[in-house]
Amino acid sequence: MTSDILSAIIVSGIVLGSGYALMASGLSLVWSTLGIFNFAHGVLMTLGAYLAWTVSDAAGLDFGLATGIAVSIAAMVGVGILIERVVVRPFYDHRDILLITVMTTLAAMIVIQKGIQLIWGARLKQLAPIMPGNVRLLQTTISAQEALIIVLAPLVLCALWLFLGRSRIGRAIRAVGQNPSAARLIGIDVSLIFIIAFAVSAVLAGLTGVLLGSVRLLTPEFGAEPLVKALIIVIFGGLGSLSGTILAAYIIGLLEATLVFLVGIYWAPSLIFVLLIFVLILRPQGLLGKVVR
């Protein structure tokens, strides 16, 4: 393997991993706070990208990219809150909340995806890149937008990590995830924390959509494959561990890039699944997960 092939694999793996990390961290946040999987997380990414496109693109409202991104991110706060309200909140006291919300969030995903198809049509769209042009990195050329993703993802994740670790609200989110009744007894409004966790998670999904929307083409199914990857990553990283999720995202990104090079794009996804099954047989709790939740 020559060094430029190796560096191409590494760079494309890191680009993939950065997107996955942004995507999966939102999913992981909701899991560790509420104990549910939000299957609508992928379609939130799609929605974020389409909203940014409509506001920014010349074929839409033509307000420019910065406005488009800002509007999209702000809208995601509302969408996150709405999803929590409509498909999660009614089932908080239910014993089988995990299973019920698999159903309800899947339903939300389908409804939103069909809605997107209805509003924006099936025609492919693409966001303008935040940074146009190309850059050279480790003897490989990538688009400046991809380079931006590589830089931005760790910054956003660091901010998320600091928020959860240091801020009052962030700590309250973790407290609610670890012991909601004890959190309630120190004066934390648990349902408000659930709303905040959903809003932050939706913003992360929207941000991923906005960033990837100029690297890939927008279709109503834009977020479907990232959702599946993010699910795998959250499980592989160890349920409830944000650092595990982030580590797993980059590992899977690099693994995918390697497999694409070795066996081609056709077999790579299935091979990733097979490898993960082996890993989970050896380490059922995932990379950094706790043995029991």
Binding site: S181, R184, L185, G187
Partner: peptide, 23 residues
């Protein structure tokens, strides 16, 4: 609601509280 009662200063230290395991 509980959080309002806490805000007023009536504090309940529950039985066998395992608190926040990872904190």
């Amino acid at each position: 609601a509980s959080q309002k009662i806490v805000a007023r200063g009536l504090i309940h230290v529950p039985q066998a509280n395992r608190l926040f395991p990872d904190m």
